[in-house]
């Protein structure tokens, strides 16, 4: 009979260790995490390892294929593509992360309010969510950027103004799935016994939400956040590719593709490297999201 006690005091595993154990089983997700980390580190420390200026013009080295002096080749002004891609990668990744944060914060707040309040507030917020879901996103994105670009440039300067505008607009058009997700989680969680217990102990509505319901609703939100980073990177690249994102002196990956597309026949490397960078980053993030989905799926037992 003494054995029973031994079984009960089994090894205590913190939720994070448990999550890591589950995540580790998704081989592609682990490989993708390594790939993504490599890209992030390369983009952050790159300028020290490859101290070439992004806008040194050298007309003797125009449109050169990859070589020892220029590992990724040069563009039509003889600028070094590796240096430009490192610089642009910082912006592309920063836009992805910042836009994801905007989308998640807005989505969680709206979803939480809708999920915890019953009746007309919930109905109204969900109507707004559905309305935003049926907005044509890219045309609207283009419209807003066209209308507000100059005003923000005057206030925050060229680089910061465009950055803020793009982040806010991409994030502001991507919060709806998160809001729906959080609301659905709240609707089931708020009826659970542990919330009732907290209420019986006198916890205020805010405390119930922040301390008890929200942490339990975070799993799917983390997955959505990961996928959102990929979607935001694609959105930013699309804008830049259409020539309506960052200006030419800020070479994000999408902007590099935009500049390269008229030289496809002479200098395919110019388009292939930034395109591959976007593809690998997005693919890695999507695989990580898939791995996290398996990790946070409560139906899945290790």
């Amino acid at each position: 009979m003494a054995d029973i006690g031994a079984v009960v005091t089994a090894e205590h595993v913190s939720p994070w260790v448990d999550a890591w154990r589950k995540f580790r089983r998704h081989k592609l997700a682990v490989a993708s995490s390594i790939a993504l980390l490599t890209i992030i580190v390369a983009v952050i420390v790159g300028p020290w390892l490859w101290p070439v200026s992004i806008n040194d013009i050298d007309f003797t080295a125009r449109l050169q294929p990859p070589s020892r002096a220029h590992p990724f080749g040069t563009d039509d002004l003889g600028q070094d593509l590796l240096a430009r891609m490192i610089y642009g990668g910082r912006i592309s990744l920063a836009v992805g992360l910042a836009a994801m944060l905007v989308a998640i914060i807005v989505g969680v707040i709206i979803g939480a309010i809708a999920g915890i309040s019953r009746g007309s507030v919930d109905t109204a917020l969900m109507w707004v969510t559905d309305l935003f879901l049926s907005l044509p996103q890219l045309p609207l994105l283009l419209l807003i950027i066209y209308l507000f670009r100059d005003a923000l440039k005057d206030v925050f300067g060229v680089e910061m103004g465009v950055f803020i505008l793009i982040v806010v607009v991409i994030g502001g058009l991507r919060w709806m799935p998160v809001a729906r997700l959080v609301r659905a989680q709240f609707l089931s969680l708020r009826e659970k016994e542990f919330v009732e217990a907290a209420q019986a102990l006198g916890a205020s509505k805010t405390r119930q939400v922040v301390r008890h319901i929200l942490p339990n609703a975070m799993g799917p939100v983390i997955v959505a956040a990961t996928i959102d980073v990929a979607a935001a990177i694609i959105a930013e690249s699309t804008l830049s590719f259409l020539g309506l994102g960052f200006p030419p002196d800020i070479p994000t990956w999408g902007r590099l593709l935009f500049d390269a597309k008229d030289f496809l026949d002479y200098a395919p490397h110019w388009a292939l490297f930034p395109g591959a960078a976007i593809f690998i980053t997005v693919l890695a993030i999507n695989f990580i999201g898939d791995g996290l989905r398996d990790t946070f799926d409560p139906r899945r037992v290790l």
């Binding site: 990929a230 694609i234 690249s237 699309t238 590719f241 999408g254 593709l257 390269a260 597309k261 496809l264 026949d265 395919p268 388009a271 395109g275 976007i278 593809f279 997005v282 693919l283 999507n286 695989f287 898939d290």
Partner: peptide, 22 residues
């Protein structure tokens, strides 16, 4: 499927032009 929706349309478009046209 994963590769397909991680490849943005602007990049596949350029790749197709490169391969099939050029």
């Amino acid at each position: 499927a994963f590769i397909g929706f991680s490849l943005p349309t602007f990049f596949t478009g350029l790749l197709f032009i490169l391969v099939f046209s050029i």
